[in-house]
Nucleic acid binder design. Structure first.
Lengths: 226, 226
DNA sequence: CGGCATCCATTTTGATACTG
DNA sequence: CAGTATCAAAATGGATGCCG
């Protein structure tokens, strides 16, 4: 594996030699929100077979971007996590997401899969540090059967899967409604009003939540697709 | 082409559906410094055949990321350029480069090709806006037979190939010496002292040049490669 | 020079079956 | 669960020839 190289003395090309193959950056996207087991990864990535998944993970291990760990408290099963080097690819993934939010999202196609974690990472992608300079808060999202949380602190945000230890606010919503929410069809306030979502916890934290993100101007595409 | 999609309703995956195939991001890297002719692109990307290059370019055109243009003043030949949407992938490429500078560069392998434009883009990747907040200057680099320039203005930098219209300072150096320079073996000051490089123009601009870039701590890798 | 079409050897992938 | 083994389909690369 990875015998195919661009053979360029260029930082971009060298990086793509390591993580540019199919599925690799999506694997890193999954691991950015915390350790994952083999089968969780496969469940999140429809179309990626066990063989290729094993090969990709082995490659990331060999290159020092990921490593096997044992899940902490109750689970205690084997899982994969990013090393510091791997985690530093976060900005790359986030910029890909930011670009996609602006230029490539539109409606969900029926054959597309969806996981709430992707949307929460999308929140991270359009997080506005300025707006959160004076905010410290922990949000927990319960979407369908997935639980994620985001820690906002001193102009930074970090999303992780799993429940928060001490959330300031909790947002609960069904997966389908969440998709419509992220599609921009309506706002969180609307969702709460119609009963599609419920939010509990610190009111100030909830009020601040809405202003933290700046969607990269959806649909102001200058260039028509020729 | 591009019948293979991740089928995920996720901004990162949708973006990788568009630009995640082999060679595509390197093509965009080439176009980030200005329009390029078909044959220039092929010359820069050893291993990419005419057929695949044509297919990739067509794909980028179809998706509105690149377009055919006519080169300006003297050349007047056909070339490819990025659209605004394509140009906005600059941050993605630059973050890939920044990561590579930190974790993947080391020595140049003998089979690796090199083009000065890649290194100048590398400069852009480790540009420190803070250090240039009060600086306005245009630098021209003449490396081997390639000419590039960088415009520094109000905390931003933009690198383009071709000569500058009115450079404040000009740096001339051979390609091999330039490789050693970017490898960190010695500094620009050393190169000038030994005669490997020559710099002319505004002395202040040249002095400021050295402080503008922060190499991402080469070789402080925390994780040994298992 | 710019670009497309075709043929072919080699890799990569996708999907499934199978094992500890 | 966590992978390995296997095989068919697709993508790549390299060469070559064609055309304006």
């Amino acid at each position: 594996m990875e015998q195919r190289t661009y053979n360029q003395y260029c930082a971009t090309a060298r990086t793509l030699d390591l993580v540019g193959e199919r599925w690799t950056l999506l694997l890193i996207r999954e691991l950015l929100t915390g350790p994952r087991r083999f089968s969780d990864l496969q469940a999140s990535l429809r179309g990626l077979g066990t063989g290729l998944l094993a090969a990709r993970l082995k490659h990331l291990e060999r290159e020092g971007l990921a490593c096997k760990t044992t899940l902490p408290a109750p689970a205690r099963t084997a899982a994969y996590a990013l090393t510091p080097a791997g985690a530093e690819l976060g900005p790359v993934v986030l910029h890909l997401a930011r670009w996609g939010l602006k230029w490539a999202m539109g409606e969900r196609r029926p054959e597309e899969t969806f996981h709430p974690g992707w949307a929460v990472l999308g929140l991270e992608a359009c997080f506005d540090p300025q707006k959160a300079a004076d905010l410290t808060a922990v949000y927990e999202f319960r979407v369908g059967d997935e639980v994620l949380h985001a820690v906002v602190e001193a102009g930074t945000i970090a999303a992780q899967h799993g429940p928060a230890q001490r959330p300031d606010a909790t947002i609960t919503i069904g997966e389908d409604d969440f998709v419509r929410l992220t599609g921009g069809n309506f706002t969180l306030a609307d969702a709460i009003k119609t009963g599609a979502a419920s939010a509990t916890g610190d009111r100030t934290a909830l009020r601040r939540l809405k202003g933290l993100f700046r969607l990269p101007t959806p649909e102001d595409r200058a260039q028509p697709k020729l």
